[in-house]
Amino acid sequence: MQTVMISPAELDALIEKWQTYYAVYVPALAKPAAATTDWAPGWRRFVEGEPLILPVGPTPASVKTFYFPQPETLLSFSLEENHPDKGAMREPVKSQGMQVVLGVRPCDAASVLLNQLPFIEDPLYMANCQRTALVGFTCTSRLSTCFCTEMGGSPLHSAGLDLALSSLEDGFILEVLSEKGEILVAGCNLVPASASDMAGLTARRQGAAPGDSVQLQLLRSCALNRLYEAPMWQALGEACINCGACTFICPTCFCFDIQDEVVQGQGRRIRYWDSCMFPLYSQHTSGHNPRGKKLQRTRNRFLHKLKYFPDRFGPFSCVGCGRCIGDCPVNIDIREVLSDLVRCTELE
């Protein structure tokens, strides 16, 4: 894998070249006038000649939508009366085309790797991984809600990206990080990055050391019961209105519902994003609900990210993008939840 220099003009030319072969998406900073097939929530197709503008911090919507689109068709069937195969379930036809997502931040790139842990055996998710290339920009500044470093990440990380761009005074260092990345830059005559530029990037990265903080280590080694029974959930459960906004904008929330949808005799089974904040999520057909209380649902979301997921897979299921902090209507801050939990681990 190579590390090269690329000027803004060369980058523009490269993106225009991708445009002829692949579907190229960029962050949509404004809501599109109408939903079209060239659109994914929070993202839009790149238009030639338009400047690429990235927000400070994470993009408005996470890249989850490219790997785990909603809805995703699981199978299709016909319920037409005279159909010879009425009710027979057929494999869905999946799009094969490559898509390039441009403007991805390191936090979102890390989320793709985290979500692969549960989805590694899911053929639909993994097929989307195969056909999606992530071109990311490391962060030069951060929002007040950004906390990737607290979650063991870094604004300069490149893990999960196929191409990583880090800005210099007069251009970018472009790191080619995967086979997909190699394909994207194939045929370009780009100058290898100078030793001093590479050393500069390495030095900056060392400043933001990754890994579990002391806080995270405490949480990791604490028994579940202590965290589950912590008194803090009472106040948090009262504050949370269970709107589910945090779960939908979260790059690492991945639970889903499955339903059948029939339109004029043609049916399909779809999966789409769900939220453990909703009472119906866990309600039995009998009416019994194991998480019937708001407190229980609020606790479930945070403990899933900070205890259940790490217990099962290793890493914490949070990349510190801070989207949920910005969008929560009642100002719940996962960083405060985290430090309150850590305090619980220290109480005797």
Partner: peptide, 19 residues
């Protein structure tokens, strides 16, 4: 045990009892 389920394969998270 029984809980509400969707995927039945440990992915959709609906039936979780803690971890």
């Amino acid at each position: 045990l029984e809980n509400r389920m969707k995927c039945g394969q440990g992915l959709c998270c609906h039936c979780n009892v803690g971890p």
